[in-house]
């Protein structure tokens, strides 16, 4: 498999694992019309099981060479992608999920008798408060700083999804 597809596919799979472990409902929009990789809904109680609650839109990006400082990961986005994530005018809130993967695909997964280790981790970030980049040159890129405290776990993922619809019934 082509290196980029391999890394991208693995990164999406990690998000699917976390979503499944968090008991969320996940849909992959097809065709890809706006760069959103997944929509995630809470799986709630009641006849419609949360069908009337607001999902979150997720765009998944990955880095095999993790750049950053003590508190943040630095990820470079193409300006149109950045502007899409920074646009507050959406039906559902949109998040960037950054997946840090090992440089070598053979290090992605280790199997042990009592578990499966999936490397490395996923971080979430909202760009809703960022200002869109205007008058950028063609193919220009911009840097996003993602707090290392925004580690995506089963709990933090559930919190994000539930926060999208504060009026909804609890899961």
């Amino acid at each position: 498999m082509d290196r980029n597809n391999h890394q991208g596919g693995y990164a999406e799979a990690l998000v699917r694992v976390l979503s499944a472990a968090a008991g969320l409902r996940l849909a992959k929009p097809e065709p890809d019309l706006d760069g959103i990789d997944f929509c995630l809904w809470p799986d709630r109680v009641g006849a419609l099981r949360g069908a009337r609650s607001t999902p979150i839109n997720v765009q998944v990006k990955s880095d095999s060479v993790a750049a950053g400082n003590a508190t943040h990961w630095h990820h470079t986005l193409k300006v149109p992608h950045f502007n899409a994530l920074a646009d507050p005018e959406t039906t559902f809130p949109t998040y960037l999920f950054l997946v840090i993967v090992p440089p070598e695909p053979r290090q992605y997964v280790s199997t042990y008798p009592d578990g499966l280790l999936l490397r490395k981790s996923v971080y979430w970030h909202s760009l809703a408060n960022e200002k869109p980049v205007v008058n950028a040159k063609k193919d220009a890129k911009t840097r996003v700083d993602i707090p290392k405290t925004n580690l995506l776990t089963v709990d933090s993922l559930r919190t994000l999804v539930n926060a999208a619809d504060p009026g909804g019934e609890p899961s």
């Binding site: 929009p29 065709p31 019309l33 959103i36 646009d87 959406t90 039906t91």
Partner: peptide, 9 residues
């Protein structure tokens, strides 16, 4: 809305 086409889809 940016995700309008997706929602309409």
């Amino acid at each position: 809305f940016r995700d309008y086409p997706q929602r309409v889809n």
